[in-house]
Write a protein that binds this DNA or RNA. Structure first.
Length: 929
RNA sequence: UGUCGGAUAGCUCAGCGGGAGAGCACCCGGUUGAUAACCGGGAGGUCACGCGUUCAAAUCGCGUUCCGACGACCA
């Protein structure tokens, strides 16, 4: 036989599983196949009857295409659901969408104008939301997210709208809902009140002004300050950054405990907080002398002249006044929460000078029709003209903005519906108290989420629930036209409204008249307000989770997990908590998991102007969705998630390693039929059993990582396992046995048995993250079958071995010694002594224990070291001698052996190859490696 | 301005009181029977900075800087 012919006698790897994934091109076909074969439904069937794990989807808002943040969120959810499925749970996933609310209504207004007939507007909103949902849905599915995509929940489904009305009824029944007049966050562009969750702080340029309110009663002033006379007019000086609130000014507040000074200046006598006199005078560029001081409470009710109206306003006392600026605060009850409270205490008029559109109403002298945004200039001019503008200066400060419009909001007193935080509800506890308890009963991943949510609940004001908009679920109440009291049959009427909405959607409520509910329309009026859209998603635990087996879904309540970005502590986590506590006295979730936001490689936010935006659609189309999945799965999401082209490139490299390891496993078990060829571990070689032990430990650790939702540890472990334990050790050593031993020989079948188990475990462990690849490999293992990795669990795969820990200890030491050997061989190689390590022979000197360890491997030691000969000597310290073999190279197994040529029939191969080639013989015998 | 979180190799991340690590990238070499793969070796970090506690600190404490989240600054 010629040298080259021996190659055909080897068992070389063979598999259709390609080395390159070609992911971007092939993934869509997988997704199509999953849909056709109804993979999600079939997983449901396979997991029927198992304990449930309910991840309740936080609904993304049905507007705009998805960005990386969406991708991160959905992929994390998908990893959770899939890992729970593999862990032996029945873990359904029903994606949802948040459909009502201003942003959509605004889009429609932009497109079709503001004066649409309300029902027409609602129809357009509905259609628009549906379109957006379809776009987002396609992108989510493209990421490999498995779920009930044909039956998602939408907050605009009639059923869901109706159930939200029922939820509202429940909150009302608990006595937590009330109607009240008070200043709320108001967005001029929205024409609507905003909830806390819709307000964000941004820097704004304002004009900060110091305004003098002339003291009307000079006699009273001299009495208060115990001075003889103030020859000049006296002014109480206030400082404000919102000149537009001055038309609403009804008082000037001082702190009762502060000391105030009467300061004689060229501008007249100024009343300022004593501690701030110096700073103020400097700011005003004035000189002055303090004539006298008096406590704030002595100024109480001193009459002042409004800076440009004829009315007089009093000085009042309030603890909200701080020792800043002048120490006096102008007070407009319609424009601030504290002002409102102070106004209430002093029975001040609650005039509302600003209308819905942000313009002063017609009764406002001098400024009727002026938008508050344009009011600074005329007001300043007027103050100047009246000689009461003491100072004005631009100021850049942080100011509340509408989170949708990014425009500054105003405070404006309006009549709204609120959910009271401190009203007694279930169990005679206030909502705040229930929420506090519910937070204590919730598990947080990571743990600091608890402190964050608590702090928010402690500090938050009542929930402003009503909106004066069209595209939202209505507050289905009837109020008495004179008393504004709700109808006595409110509970029944809410249910009647819910039924109507169940049939015809929210449109049905708006279309109906009071008489349609048997209510006397001459006495009661039907509300047309809608609820804050946060109430929609905040009640999905009721409208979606509670709807057991009624719709397409059978879900559970409370949910096991809510998983959202950290912004949802003030959003969905909180709105759901409050409605849960209001309705059930508990949170609708058992645990909360939160992830950070996505930033670029330098830690900067993604923005179009920076050009650092990474679109998930683009990554899917170039590198493949699998790469985004692996990126998510290998990032610590508790902080920020960095993504950039370079980072993605690294992820691709890391993916290749795992994929190729898989390919090797598949290629070397292609001829292996576990039904016929699988050997039990006690018939394996020692190193195979060690490989099994390693795999088991790795699997245990990964499963624990999944359990704690720490997926990046899983990715890290899989990567390290493939590289170090398999590629760099076990598989490298195994090649000789797999290739050169008889195809069906016991040593080879033992190796394949181990590889079979490793493959099974590896695929299960990677499947939640690398779903496309795991399914592709699974299909390779089960050609033509209606199979899926997700029909299986990872709980019962690996046989346990009794001596695992001893075995691992032993082989760890062997690997350490092996590293020393490789170092020595490398030196020999660099010196030109050898090329391949098989060209080398090693003599290992080791202490007694190590020597015993190595000798226990017998003749198989040379296979572990991948040399042609390895012998052991006992000595004091570990030393390795490596030399080039003097023997000829076996043409078949490439080992350099003395017995090459000793068989006449096979003059170019070694003894064991001769044995392995003998069809009648037993083949070579191996015990250890 | 407050609270919390983070700062370890080019990248992603471990380590959390006693040797500074892994994977990927990089350099060198081997192999050509995992081959647009695989194996070996190497280089690369004053573990943000400073001060403390300790026999010993990346690891504990305090402070500083930077980054981030969340509050507040609404009058």
């Amino acid at each position: 036989m010629a040298d080259t012919d021996y190659k055909s006698t080897l068992n070389l790897p063979d598999t259709p599983f390609p080395m390159r994934g070609d992911l971007a091109k092939r993934e869509p076909a997988w997704i199509a196949q999953w849909r056709e074969r109804k993979l999600y439904e079939r997983i449901r069937q396979h997991s029927a009857g198992r304990p449930k794990f309910i991840l309740h989807d936080g609904p993304p808002y049905a507007n705009n295409d998805i960005h990386v943040g969406h991708a991160v969120n959905k992929i994390l959810k998908d990893i959770v659901v899939k890992s729970k499925t593999l862990a032996g749970f029945d873990a359904p996933y029903v994606p949802g969408w948040d459909c009502h609310g201003l942003p959509i209504e605004h889009m429609i207004e932009k497109k079709h104008g503001r004066n649409l007939e309300p029902n027409k507007a609602r129809q357009l909103c509905r259609d628009y939301a549906s379109e957006q949902i379809e776009r987002q849905k396609a992108d989510f599915q493209r990421l490999g997210i498995l779920g009930d995509w044909d039956n998602p929940y939408k907050t605009m489904n009639f059923q869901t709208e109706a159930d939200e009305i029922r939820a509202l009824g429940k909150v009302w029944k608990q006595g937590l809902l009330y109607r009240g007049l008070k200043p709320v966050n108001w967005c001029i562009d929205c024409h609507s009140a905003l909830a806390e969750a819709e307000v964000e702080y941004e820097d704004k340029n304002s004009t900060a002004i110091d305004v003098g309110y002339r003291v009307v009663d000079a006699v009273a002033l001299t009495r208060i300050f115990a001075v003889a006379d103030t020859r000049t007019p006296a002014f109480a000086v206030i400082w404000t950054t919102t000149p537009w609130t001055l038309p609403g000014s009804q008082a000037v507040s001082v702190h009762p405990e502060f000391t105030y000074a009467l300061v004689d200046t060229p501008r007249g006598c100024l009343i300022l907080a004593a501690d701030l006199v110096e700073a103020c005078l400097k700011r005003y560029e004035l000189t002055g002398t303090v004539l006298a001081t008096a406590p704030g409470k002595a100024l109480d009710r001193l009459a002042l002249q409004h800076p440009f109206y004829s009315r007089q306003v009093p000085i009042i006392c309030g603890d909200h006044v701080t020792a800043e600026a002048t120490g006096l605060v102008h007070t407009a009850p319609a424009h601030g929460a504290e002002d409102f409270d102070a106004g209430k205490a002093y029975d001040l008029p609650l005039d509302q000078p600003v209308g819905d559109d942000g313009r002063y109403i017609s009764s406002v002298e001098l400024f009727a029709g002026v938008n508050v945004r344009d009011a600074d200039k005329p007001i300043l001019a007027l103050l100047e003209q009246n000689g009461v503008l003491i100072k004005s200066a631009p100021l850049r400060h942080s100011y509340p903005h509408c989170w949708r419009h990014k425009t500054p909001i105003i405070f404006r007193a309006t009549t709204q519906w609120f959910i009271g935080m401190d009203r007694k509800g279930i169990g005679a506890k206030t909502l705040r108290e229930s929420a506090r308890q519910a937070i204590a009963d919730t598990t947080f991943y990571p743990s600091w989420g608890r402190a964050r949510l608590s702090a928010m609940i402690e500090g938050r004001p009542d929930w402003t629930l009503s909106r004066q908009r069209n595209w939202g679920v209505p507050l289905t109440f009837f109020l008495h036209k004179e008393t504004n009291e709700p109808h006595p049959d409110t509970e029944a009427l809410v249910e009647a409204a819910a039924r109507k909405v169940e049939q015809g959607g929210i449109e049905a409520w708006f279309a109906a008249g009071a008489e349609d509910f048997g209510v006397d329309g001459s006495v009661y009026r039907k509300l047309t307000d809608t609820v804050d859209v946060w109430f929609d998603s905040g009640t999905t635990h009721f409208s979606v989770l509670r709807r057991l087996a009624n719709g397409h879904h059978e879900q559970g309540h409370p949910a096991d997990l809510y998983l959202e970005g950290s912004d949802q502590h003030r959003g969905w986590f909180q709105s759901s908590l409050l409605t849960g506590c209001a309705m059930d006295g508990r949170a609708p979730y058992k645990a909360l998991l939160t992830h950070g936001f996505t930033v670029d490689g330098q830690g900067r936010k993604m923005s179009k102007s920076l050009g650092n935006v990474i679109a998930p659609q683009k990554v899917s189309d170039t590198l493949g969705a699998e790469i985004i999945r692996l990126w998510v799965g290998s990032t610590d999401y508790s902080g920020e998630l960095s993504i950039s082209d370079e980072i993605l490139k690294r992820v691709v490299e890391s993916y290749r390693r795992i994929r190729n390891t898989l390919r090797f496993l598949l290629a070397n078990t292609a001829d292996f039929d576990p039904a016929k060829d699988l050997l039990p571990p006690d018939q394996w070689l020692e190193i195979d059993r060690y490989a099994l032990a390693m795999t088991r430990q790795m699997a245990d650790a990964c499963q624990a990582d999944y359990e704690r939702f720490e997926f990046h540890f899983v990715s890290q472990k899989l990567q390290a396992f493939c590289s170090e334990d398999l590629g760099g050790f076990y598989l490298d050593i195994l090649k000789d046995r797999l290739y050169t031993c008889g195809k069906s020989s016991k040593p080879r079948r033992a190796a394949q048995s181990a590889l079979h188990h490793i493959t099974q475990v590896l695929l299960r462990l990677m499947a939640p993250i690398l779903s496309f690849t795991a399914e592709e490999a699974w299909a390779t293992l089960h050609p033509g079958a209606e199979e899926s990795i997700f029909f299986h669990t990872w709980t019962d795969v690996l046989p346990a071995q009794p001596d695992e820990s001893a075995m691992c200890a032993k082989w760890s030491r062997i690997r350490e010694i092996r590293a020393a050997i490789q170092k020595r061989l490398e030196a020999l190689r660099t010196a030109g002594g050898i090329g391949s390590s098989l060209q080398g022979e090693v003599i290992i000197t080791a202490n007694q224990a190590d020597a015993a360890l190595l000798r226990s491997l017998g003749a198989d030691l040379r296979f572990v070291t991948i040399t042609s000969s390895a012998t052991v000597k006992e000595g004091a310290t570990l030393e390795v001698e490596a030399v080039a073999s003097a023997h000829p190279k076996c043409a078949r197994c490439w080992h350099y052996r003395a017995d090459v040529g000793s068989h006449a029939e096979h003059p170019h191969i070694c003894g064991r190859c001769v044995d392995n080639l003998d069809p009648a013989g037993a083949g070579e015998s191996r015990q250890h490696a």
